[in-house]
Every structure is written in structure tokens, then in C-alpha cells.
């Protein structure tokens, strides 16, 4: 096997694995902070008389927020890695240590962002008699910061892997921005459904959907005590996080995988990607049929 192909194969596997883990962690981070679209339910709750203890740092869309963390961490990491390399540290060690420092700085910024976002959110609920509970802020805050650190670290490493091993010509900070925004929109579109439609509404019947009239009637009690934002990611990681990870990991892995072959020259990856899209579309139709056959129509709606 040619060394170039071997490097590419290692790069594709590594990028896919990092993307997979980043998907799980990013989804958990957004769930821990009630980010993205389910935060509308957390905001509605005080308005219908529910006093909540959720940590709510949703003052920006998940994709741009995540893009900011990833791009900031990667920019710091790139500059530091040059400095570390000048000091005589080996290239790979320099990148790894610089990525850790970049992610650590971003983690502190995310903590400040989270504190002020939560305080301003709760302050806006004051007409609805929602108190500011310090435990609702201080308990999930370090957890959320830790998840933000891991997300920024993994996306920074992913940017360096795709740039260095896979040969993407973009600078690593731009790649981190692209990955951050893409992963944010994927996590928002897949994993957050389990938080918004299931975890927040566990006292509703499974499979009943969430009618508009029930919105805001979220869970207030957890497995023990009041429901808080530390409870959420451990539940959502099992399916929501894994699904997000599959989506992002598959995209990065399959995109790299199609570039390993050369049977049709320069057009090989385009042809293979078209085939993969067609196969996944067939899976989608099959899944729709399987779901309809498994659940059947809702009682009383068979003849609609």
C-alpha cells in the first residue's frame, strides 16, 4: 500500500472517530444549558406558572455559538502551536498542548457567557415570579463548561487532522468554524429532539406528540428532587447524543472515505457521494415505512 493512501486511511478513521465523540459531547453541552430550540419550552414554563430549576444559557443560536467556541479555540491553538514549535517541542505535541490551552480559554469564556446569559434570562422572568436559584446555576455550570472544553478541544483536533492528514486546503481556524456551525445545526436538528420532545415532557404519554396547547407544561420533578440541568445530558446522551454523533461522524467519515478511491479520476468522490446519498435516501424511505407499520395510525384517526 502506498504511504499516501495509508496516511489518508488513518486520517479518515481518526477524523470520523473524533467527529463521533465531538457529536456526543456537543449535544450534551447544548442539553445541559437548555440551548437551541427546546429553550422556548423552558422560557414558557414560568409564564404558565411553573417555577423551574433549569440552567438556561440560550441567548444565541446553537450553530453560531458552537462555531464561535471552535473557531476561537482553534485560532488560539494555531498561534500557540507555532510558539511551542519554536521552543523545540515536537509538532504533534505542540498541536495537542496548544489545543488544550485554546479549549481551556474558551471554556472560561463559555462559563462567563453562561453565567450572564442565565442571570439575564431569569431576570426577564421576574414578572412571572420566577426566583433566581443559585443551585440551578452553580451546579450545572462546571459541568457545562467541561463539556464546552471537550467540544472545543475535539473540534480543534478535527480541524488539524482534516487539514494535516486529509489535506484540506483551508486554514484550521476556518475549518473549525465550518465544523462548529455544521455540528451545531446537526445537534440542533437531531439530538435536541429527544430533549425537547421527550425529556422535558416525560409526564406525557410516549408517542403522543407535544400539542401546541401543552407547550410550556414541562417536567418539574426529577428522579429525585427537582429536575435540574445536570439530570438532562445523562438521559439524552443515550439516544440523542449517539444519534447526533452518528450524523456528524458519518458525514466526516463518508466524505473522507469517498476520497480514498480513484477509479473515475477526479470525479470519483462526486460519484461515490451521489451513490451514498441515494442509499441513505432509500434507508430513509424504509425507516418511514417501518415506523408507520410499527406504530399504526392514532386511535380515531384511521379514516382521515
Amino acid at each position: 500500500m502506498e504511504p499516501v493512501t495509508l496516511t489518508l486511511m488513518i486520517g479518515v478513521g481518526l477524523a470520523g472517530a473524533i467527529a463521533f465523540i465531538a457529536g456526543i459531547i456537543e449535544d450534551a453541552e447544548s442539553d445541559a444549558g437548555s440551548a437551541s430550540n427546546p429553550n422556548s419550552q423552558v422560557q414558557l414554563a414560568p409564564q404558565i406558572g411553573h417555577i423551574i430549576r433549569y440552567y438556561d444559557k440560550a441567548i444565541a443560536g446553537e450553530p453560531p455559538q458552537n462555531g464561535l467556541w471552535a473557531a476561537s479555540a482553534c485560532t488560539i491553538a494555531l498561534l500557540l502551536s507555532w510558539r511551542f514549535a519554536d521552543m523545540g517541542i515536537g509538532q504533534y505535541y505542540a498541536i495537542f498542548f496548544a489545543a488544550v490551552v485554546g479549549a481551556a480559554i474558551v471554556c472560561l469564556v463559555q462559563g462567563c457567557f453562561g453565567v450572564f446569559a442565565h442571570l439575564s434570562r431569569i431576570a426577564s422572568f421576574s414578572p412571572f415570579k420566577q426566583p433566581l436559584y443559585w443551585d440551578a446555576l452553580l451546579t450545572p455550570l462546571p459541568y457545562s463548561m467541561g463539556l464546552a472544553f471537550l467540544t472545543a478541544l475535539l473540534l480543534t483536533l478535527l480541524a488539524f487532522v482534516t487539514s494535516g492528514l486529509l489535506g484540506n486546503p483551508f486554514a484550521p481556524p476556518l475549518l473549525a468554524l465550518l465544523f462548529g456551525i455544521s455540528l451545531g445545526s446537526i445537534a440542533s436538528g437531531t439530538g435536541d429532539i429527544q430533549y425537547g420532545a421527550e425529556r422535558l415532557y416525560q409526564h406525557h404519554i410516549f408517542g403522543s406528540g407535544i400539542p401546541i396547547s401543552k407547550m410550556g407544561d414541562i417536567d418539574l420533578k426529577g428522579e429525585y428532587g427537582f429536575r435540574n440541568s445536570v439530570d438532562t445530558p445523562y438521559f439524552c446522551m443515550r439516544l440523542g447524543g449517539t444519534i447526533t454523533a452518528f450524523a456528524f461522524g458519518l458525514i466526516i467519515f463518508l466524505d473522507g472515505w469517498t476520497r480514498l478511491f480513484t477509479f473515475a479520476g477526479e470525479w470519483t468522490s462526486v460519484i461515490l457521494e451521489a451513490i451514498v446519498v441515494a442509499i441513505l435516501f432509500i434507508f430513509l424511505v424504509w425507516l418511514e415505512k417501518f415506523t408507520r407499520d410499527s406504530y399504526g395510525p392514532y386511535p380515531g384517526q384511521e379514516d382521515l
Partner: peptide, 15 residues
């Protein structure tokens, strides 16, 4: 397509 397939999967099995 990855996002739609897996969003359908989470709606089917998660909700």
C-alpha cells in the same frame, strides 16, 4: 440526508 435520516430515527425511537 444524514441529518434527516437520523432526525427521523430519533423521532421514531426517541419520541
Amino acid at each position: 440526508i444524514c441529518t434527516m435520516l437520523l432526525a427521523n430515527a430519533i423521532c421514531a425511537f426517541g419520541t
